[in-house]
Write a protein that binds this DNA or RNA. Structure first.
Lengths: 131, 131
DNA sequence: TATAAGTGCGGAGTATAGTCCATGGTCAAG
DNA sequence: CTTGACCATGGACTATACTCCGCACTTATA
């Protein structure tokens, strides 16, 4: 897969892909086909990797953190215990984020209920939700 | 409340507070006490507003979006129907975000299970989760 | 072999979100 | 009335994450 095809598959601009390559987040093969090809070749796994990067971004990680997490993950790949540790720490961080998100949702839903009920005395207060 | 006290209450650097004021995200009173005071005066509600901004940030909104959302909210404050519409759209966006987050969690937890189970043939694939 | 389309690379430019600093004004205590 | 702590403003600076541009090279097609 050449970069333009990969860009379509990953739904990312080519420039962004090159930026990720420069940052070390993506590592397409160079010179496949016996060294005659000067272009970067992408595998289907790279599409998954790109999707993972975007997912991690929406979860609030910077590209630097994503690189560190993914390298940490790769480093622990030969030890299942270490891999599980890495995954668990990522899961914990996501669970914290989910808790904050749920608190925000409760807060907003509480506001809706409060308005629908004809504004009884007390409006929901942000401080009452652990956001 | 003067800015240094507010900074402690909101747990934000003074410079960041000033930055938010410049962006229109916070609007402390100017010249309270009969115009004799040239300083910005913060109310407890401003602390709540600051917390809300940080919460919205962790949920992935940019300061520009937060400003727009909050102004939209204020604009609809005289109409409870409009207010509910605004809140509902914010709630929907948060629910989408929660769905993506839950998908990511399932994916990571699936990976842990897969490793713990001694790596049966199929690893969980990101594409199987709507992230 | 010309020509268009695609690729790689370096470097400049942009947007966002702060962060730091110098200057100068204000205020309360001594 | 001076001193020290606090405050406001403008402008410069930083980091992150792109985004765009120009140039040179490659490859497929006519």
């Amino acid at each position: 897969m050449l970069i333009s095809e990969f860009a379509k598959a990953a739904e990312l601009p080519i420039d962004t892909i090159r930026f990720y390559i420069a940052k070390g987040l993506l590592k397409p093969d160079r010179s496949a086909k016996g060294g005659s090809n000067p272009y970067q070749i992408f595998k289907p796994e790279d599409v998954t990797a790109a999707r993972m990067i975007r997912l991690q971004q929406t979860l609030g990680y910077s590209l630097g953190e994503i690189l560190a997490l993914n390298e940490e993950y790769r480093a622990g790949e030969n030890s299942s215990e270490r891999t599980i540790e890495v995954l668990q720490s990522q899961i914990e961080r996501l669970e914290e984020r989910r808790a904050a998100l749920n608190a925000a949702l409760s807060f907003l839903q509480g506001k809706v209920e409060w308005i629908k009920a004809g504004k009884p005395n007390e409006a929901p207060r942000l401080e009452d939700y652990q956001c």
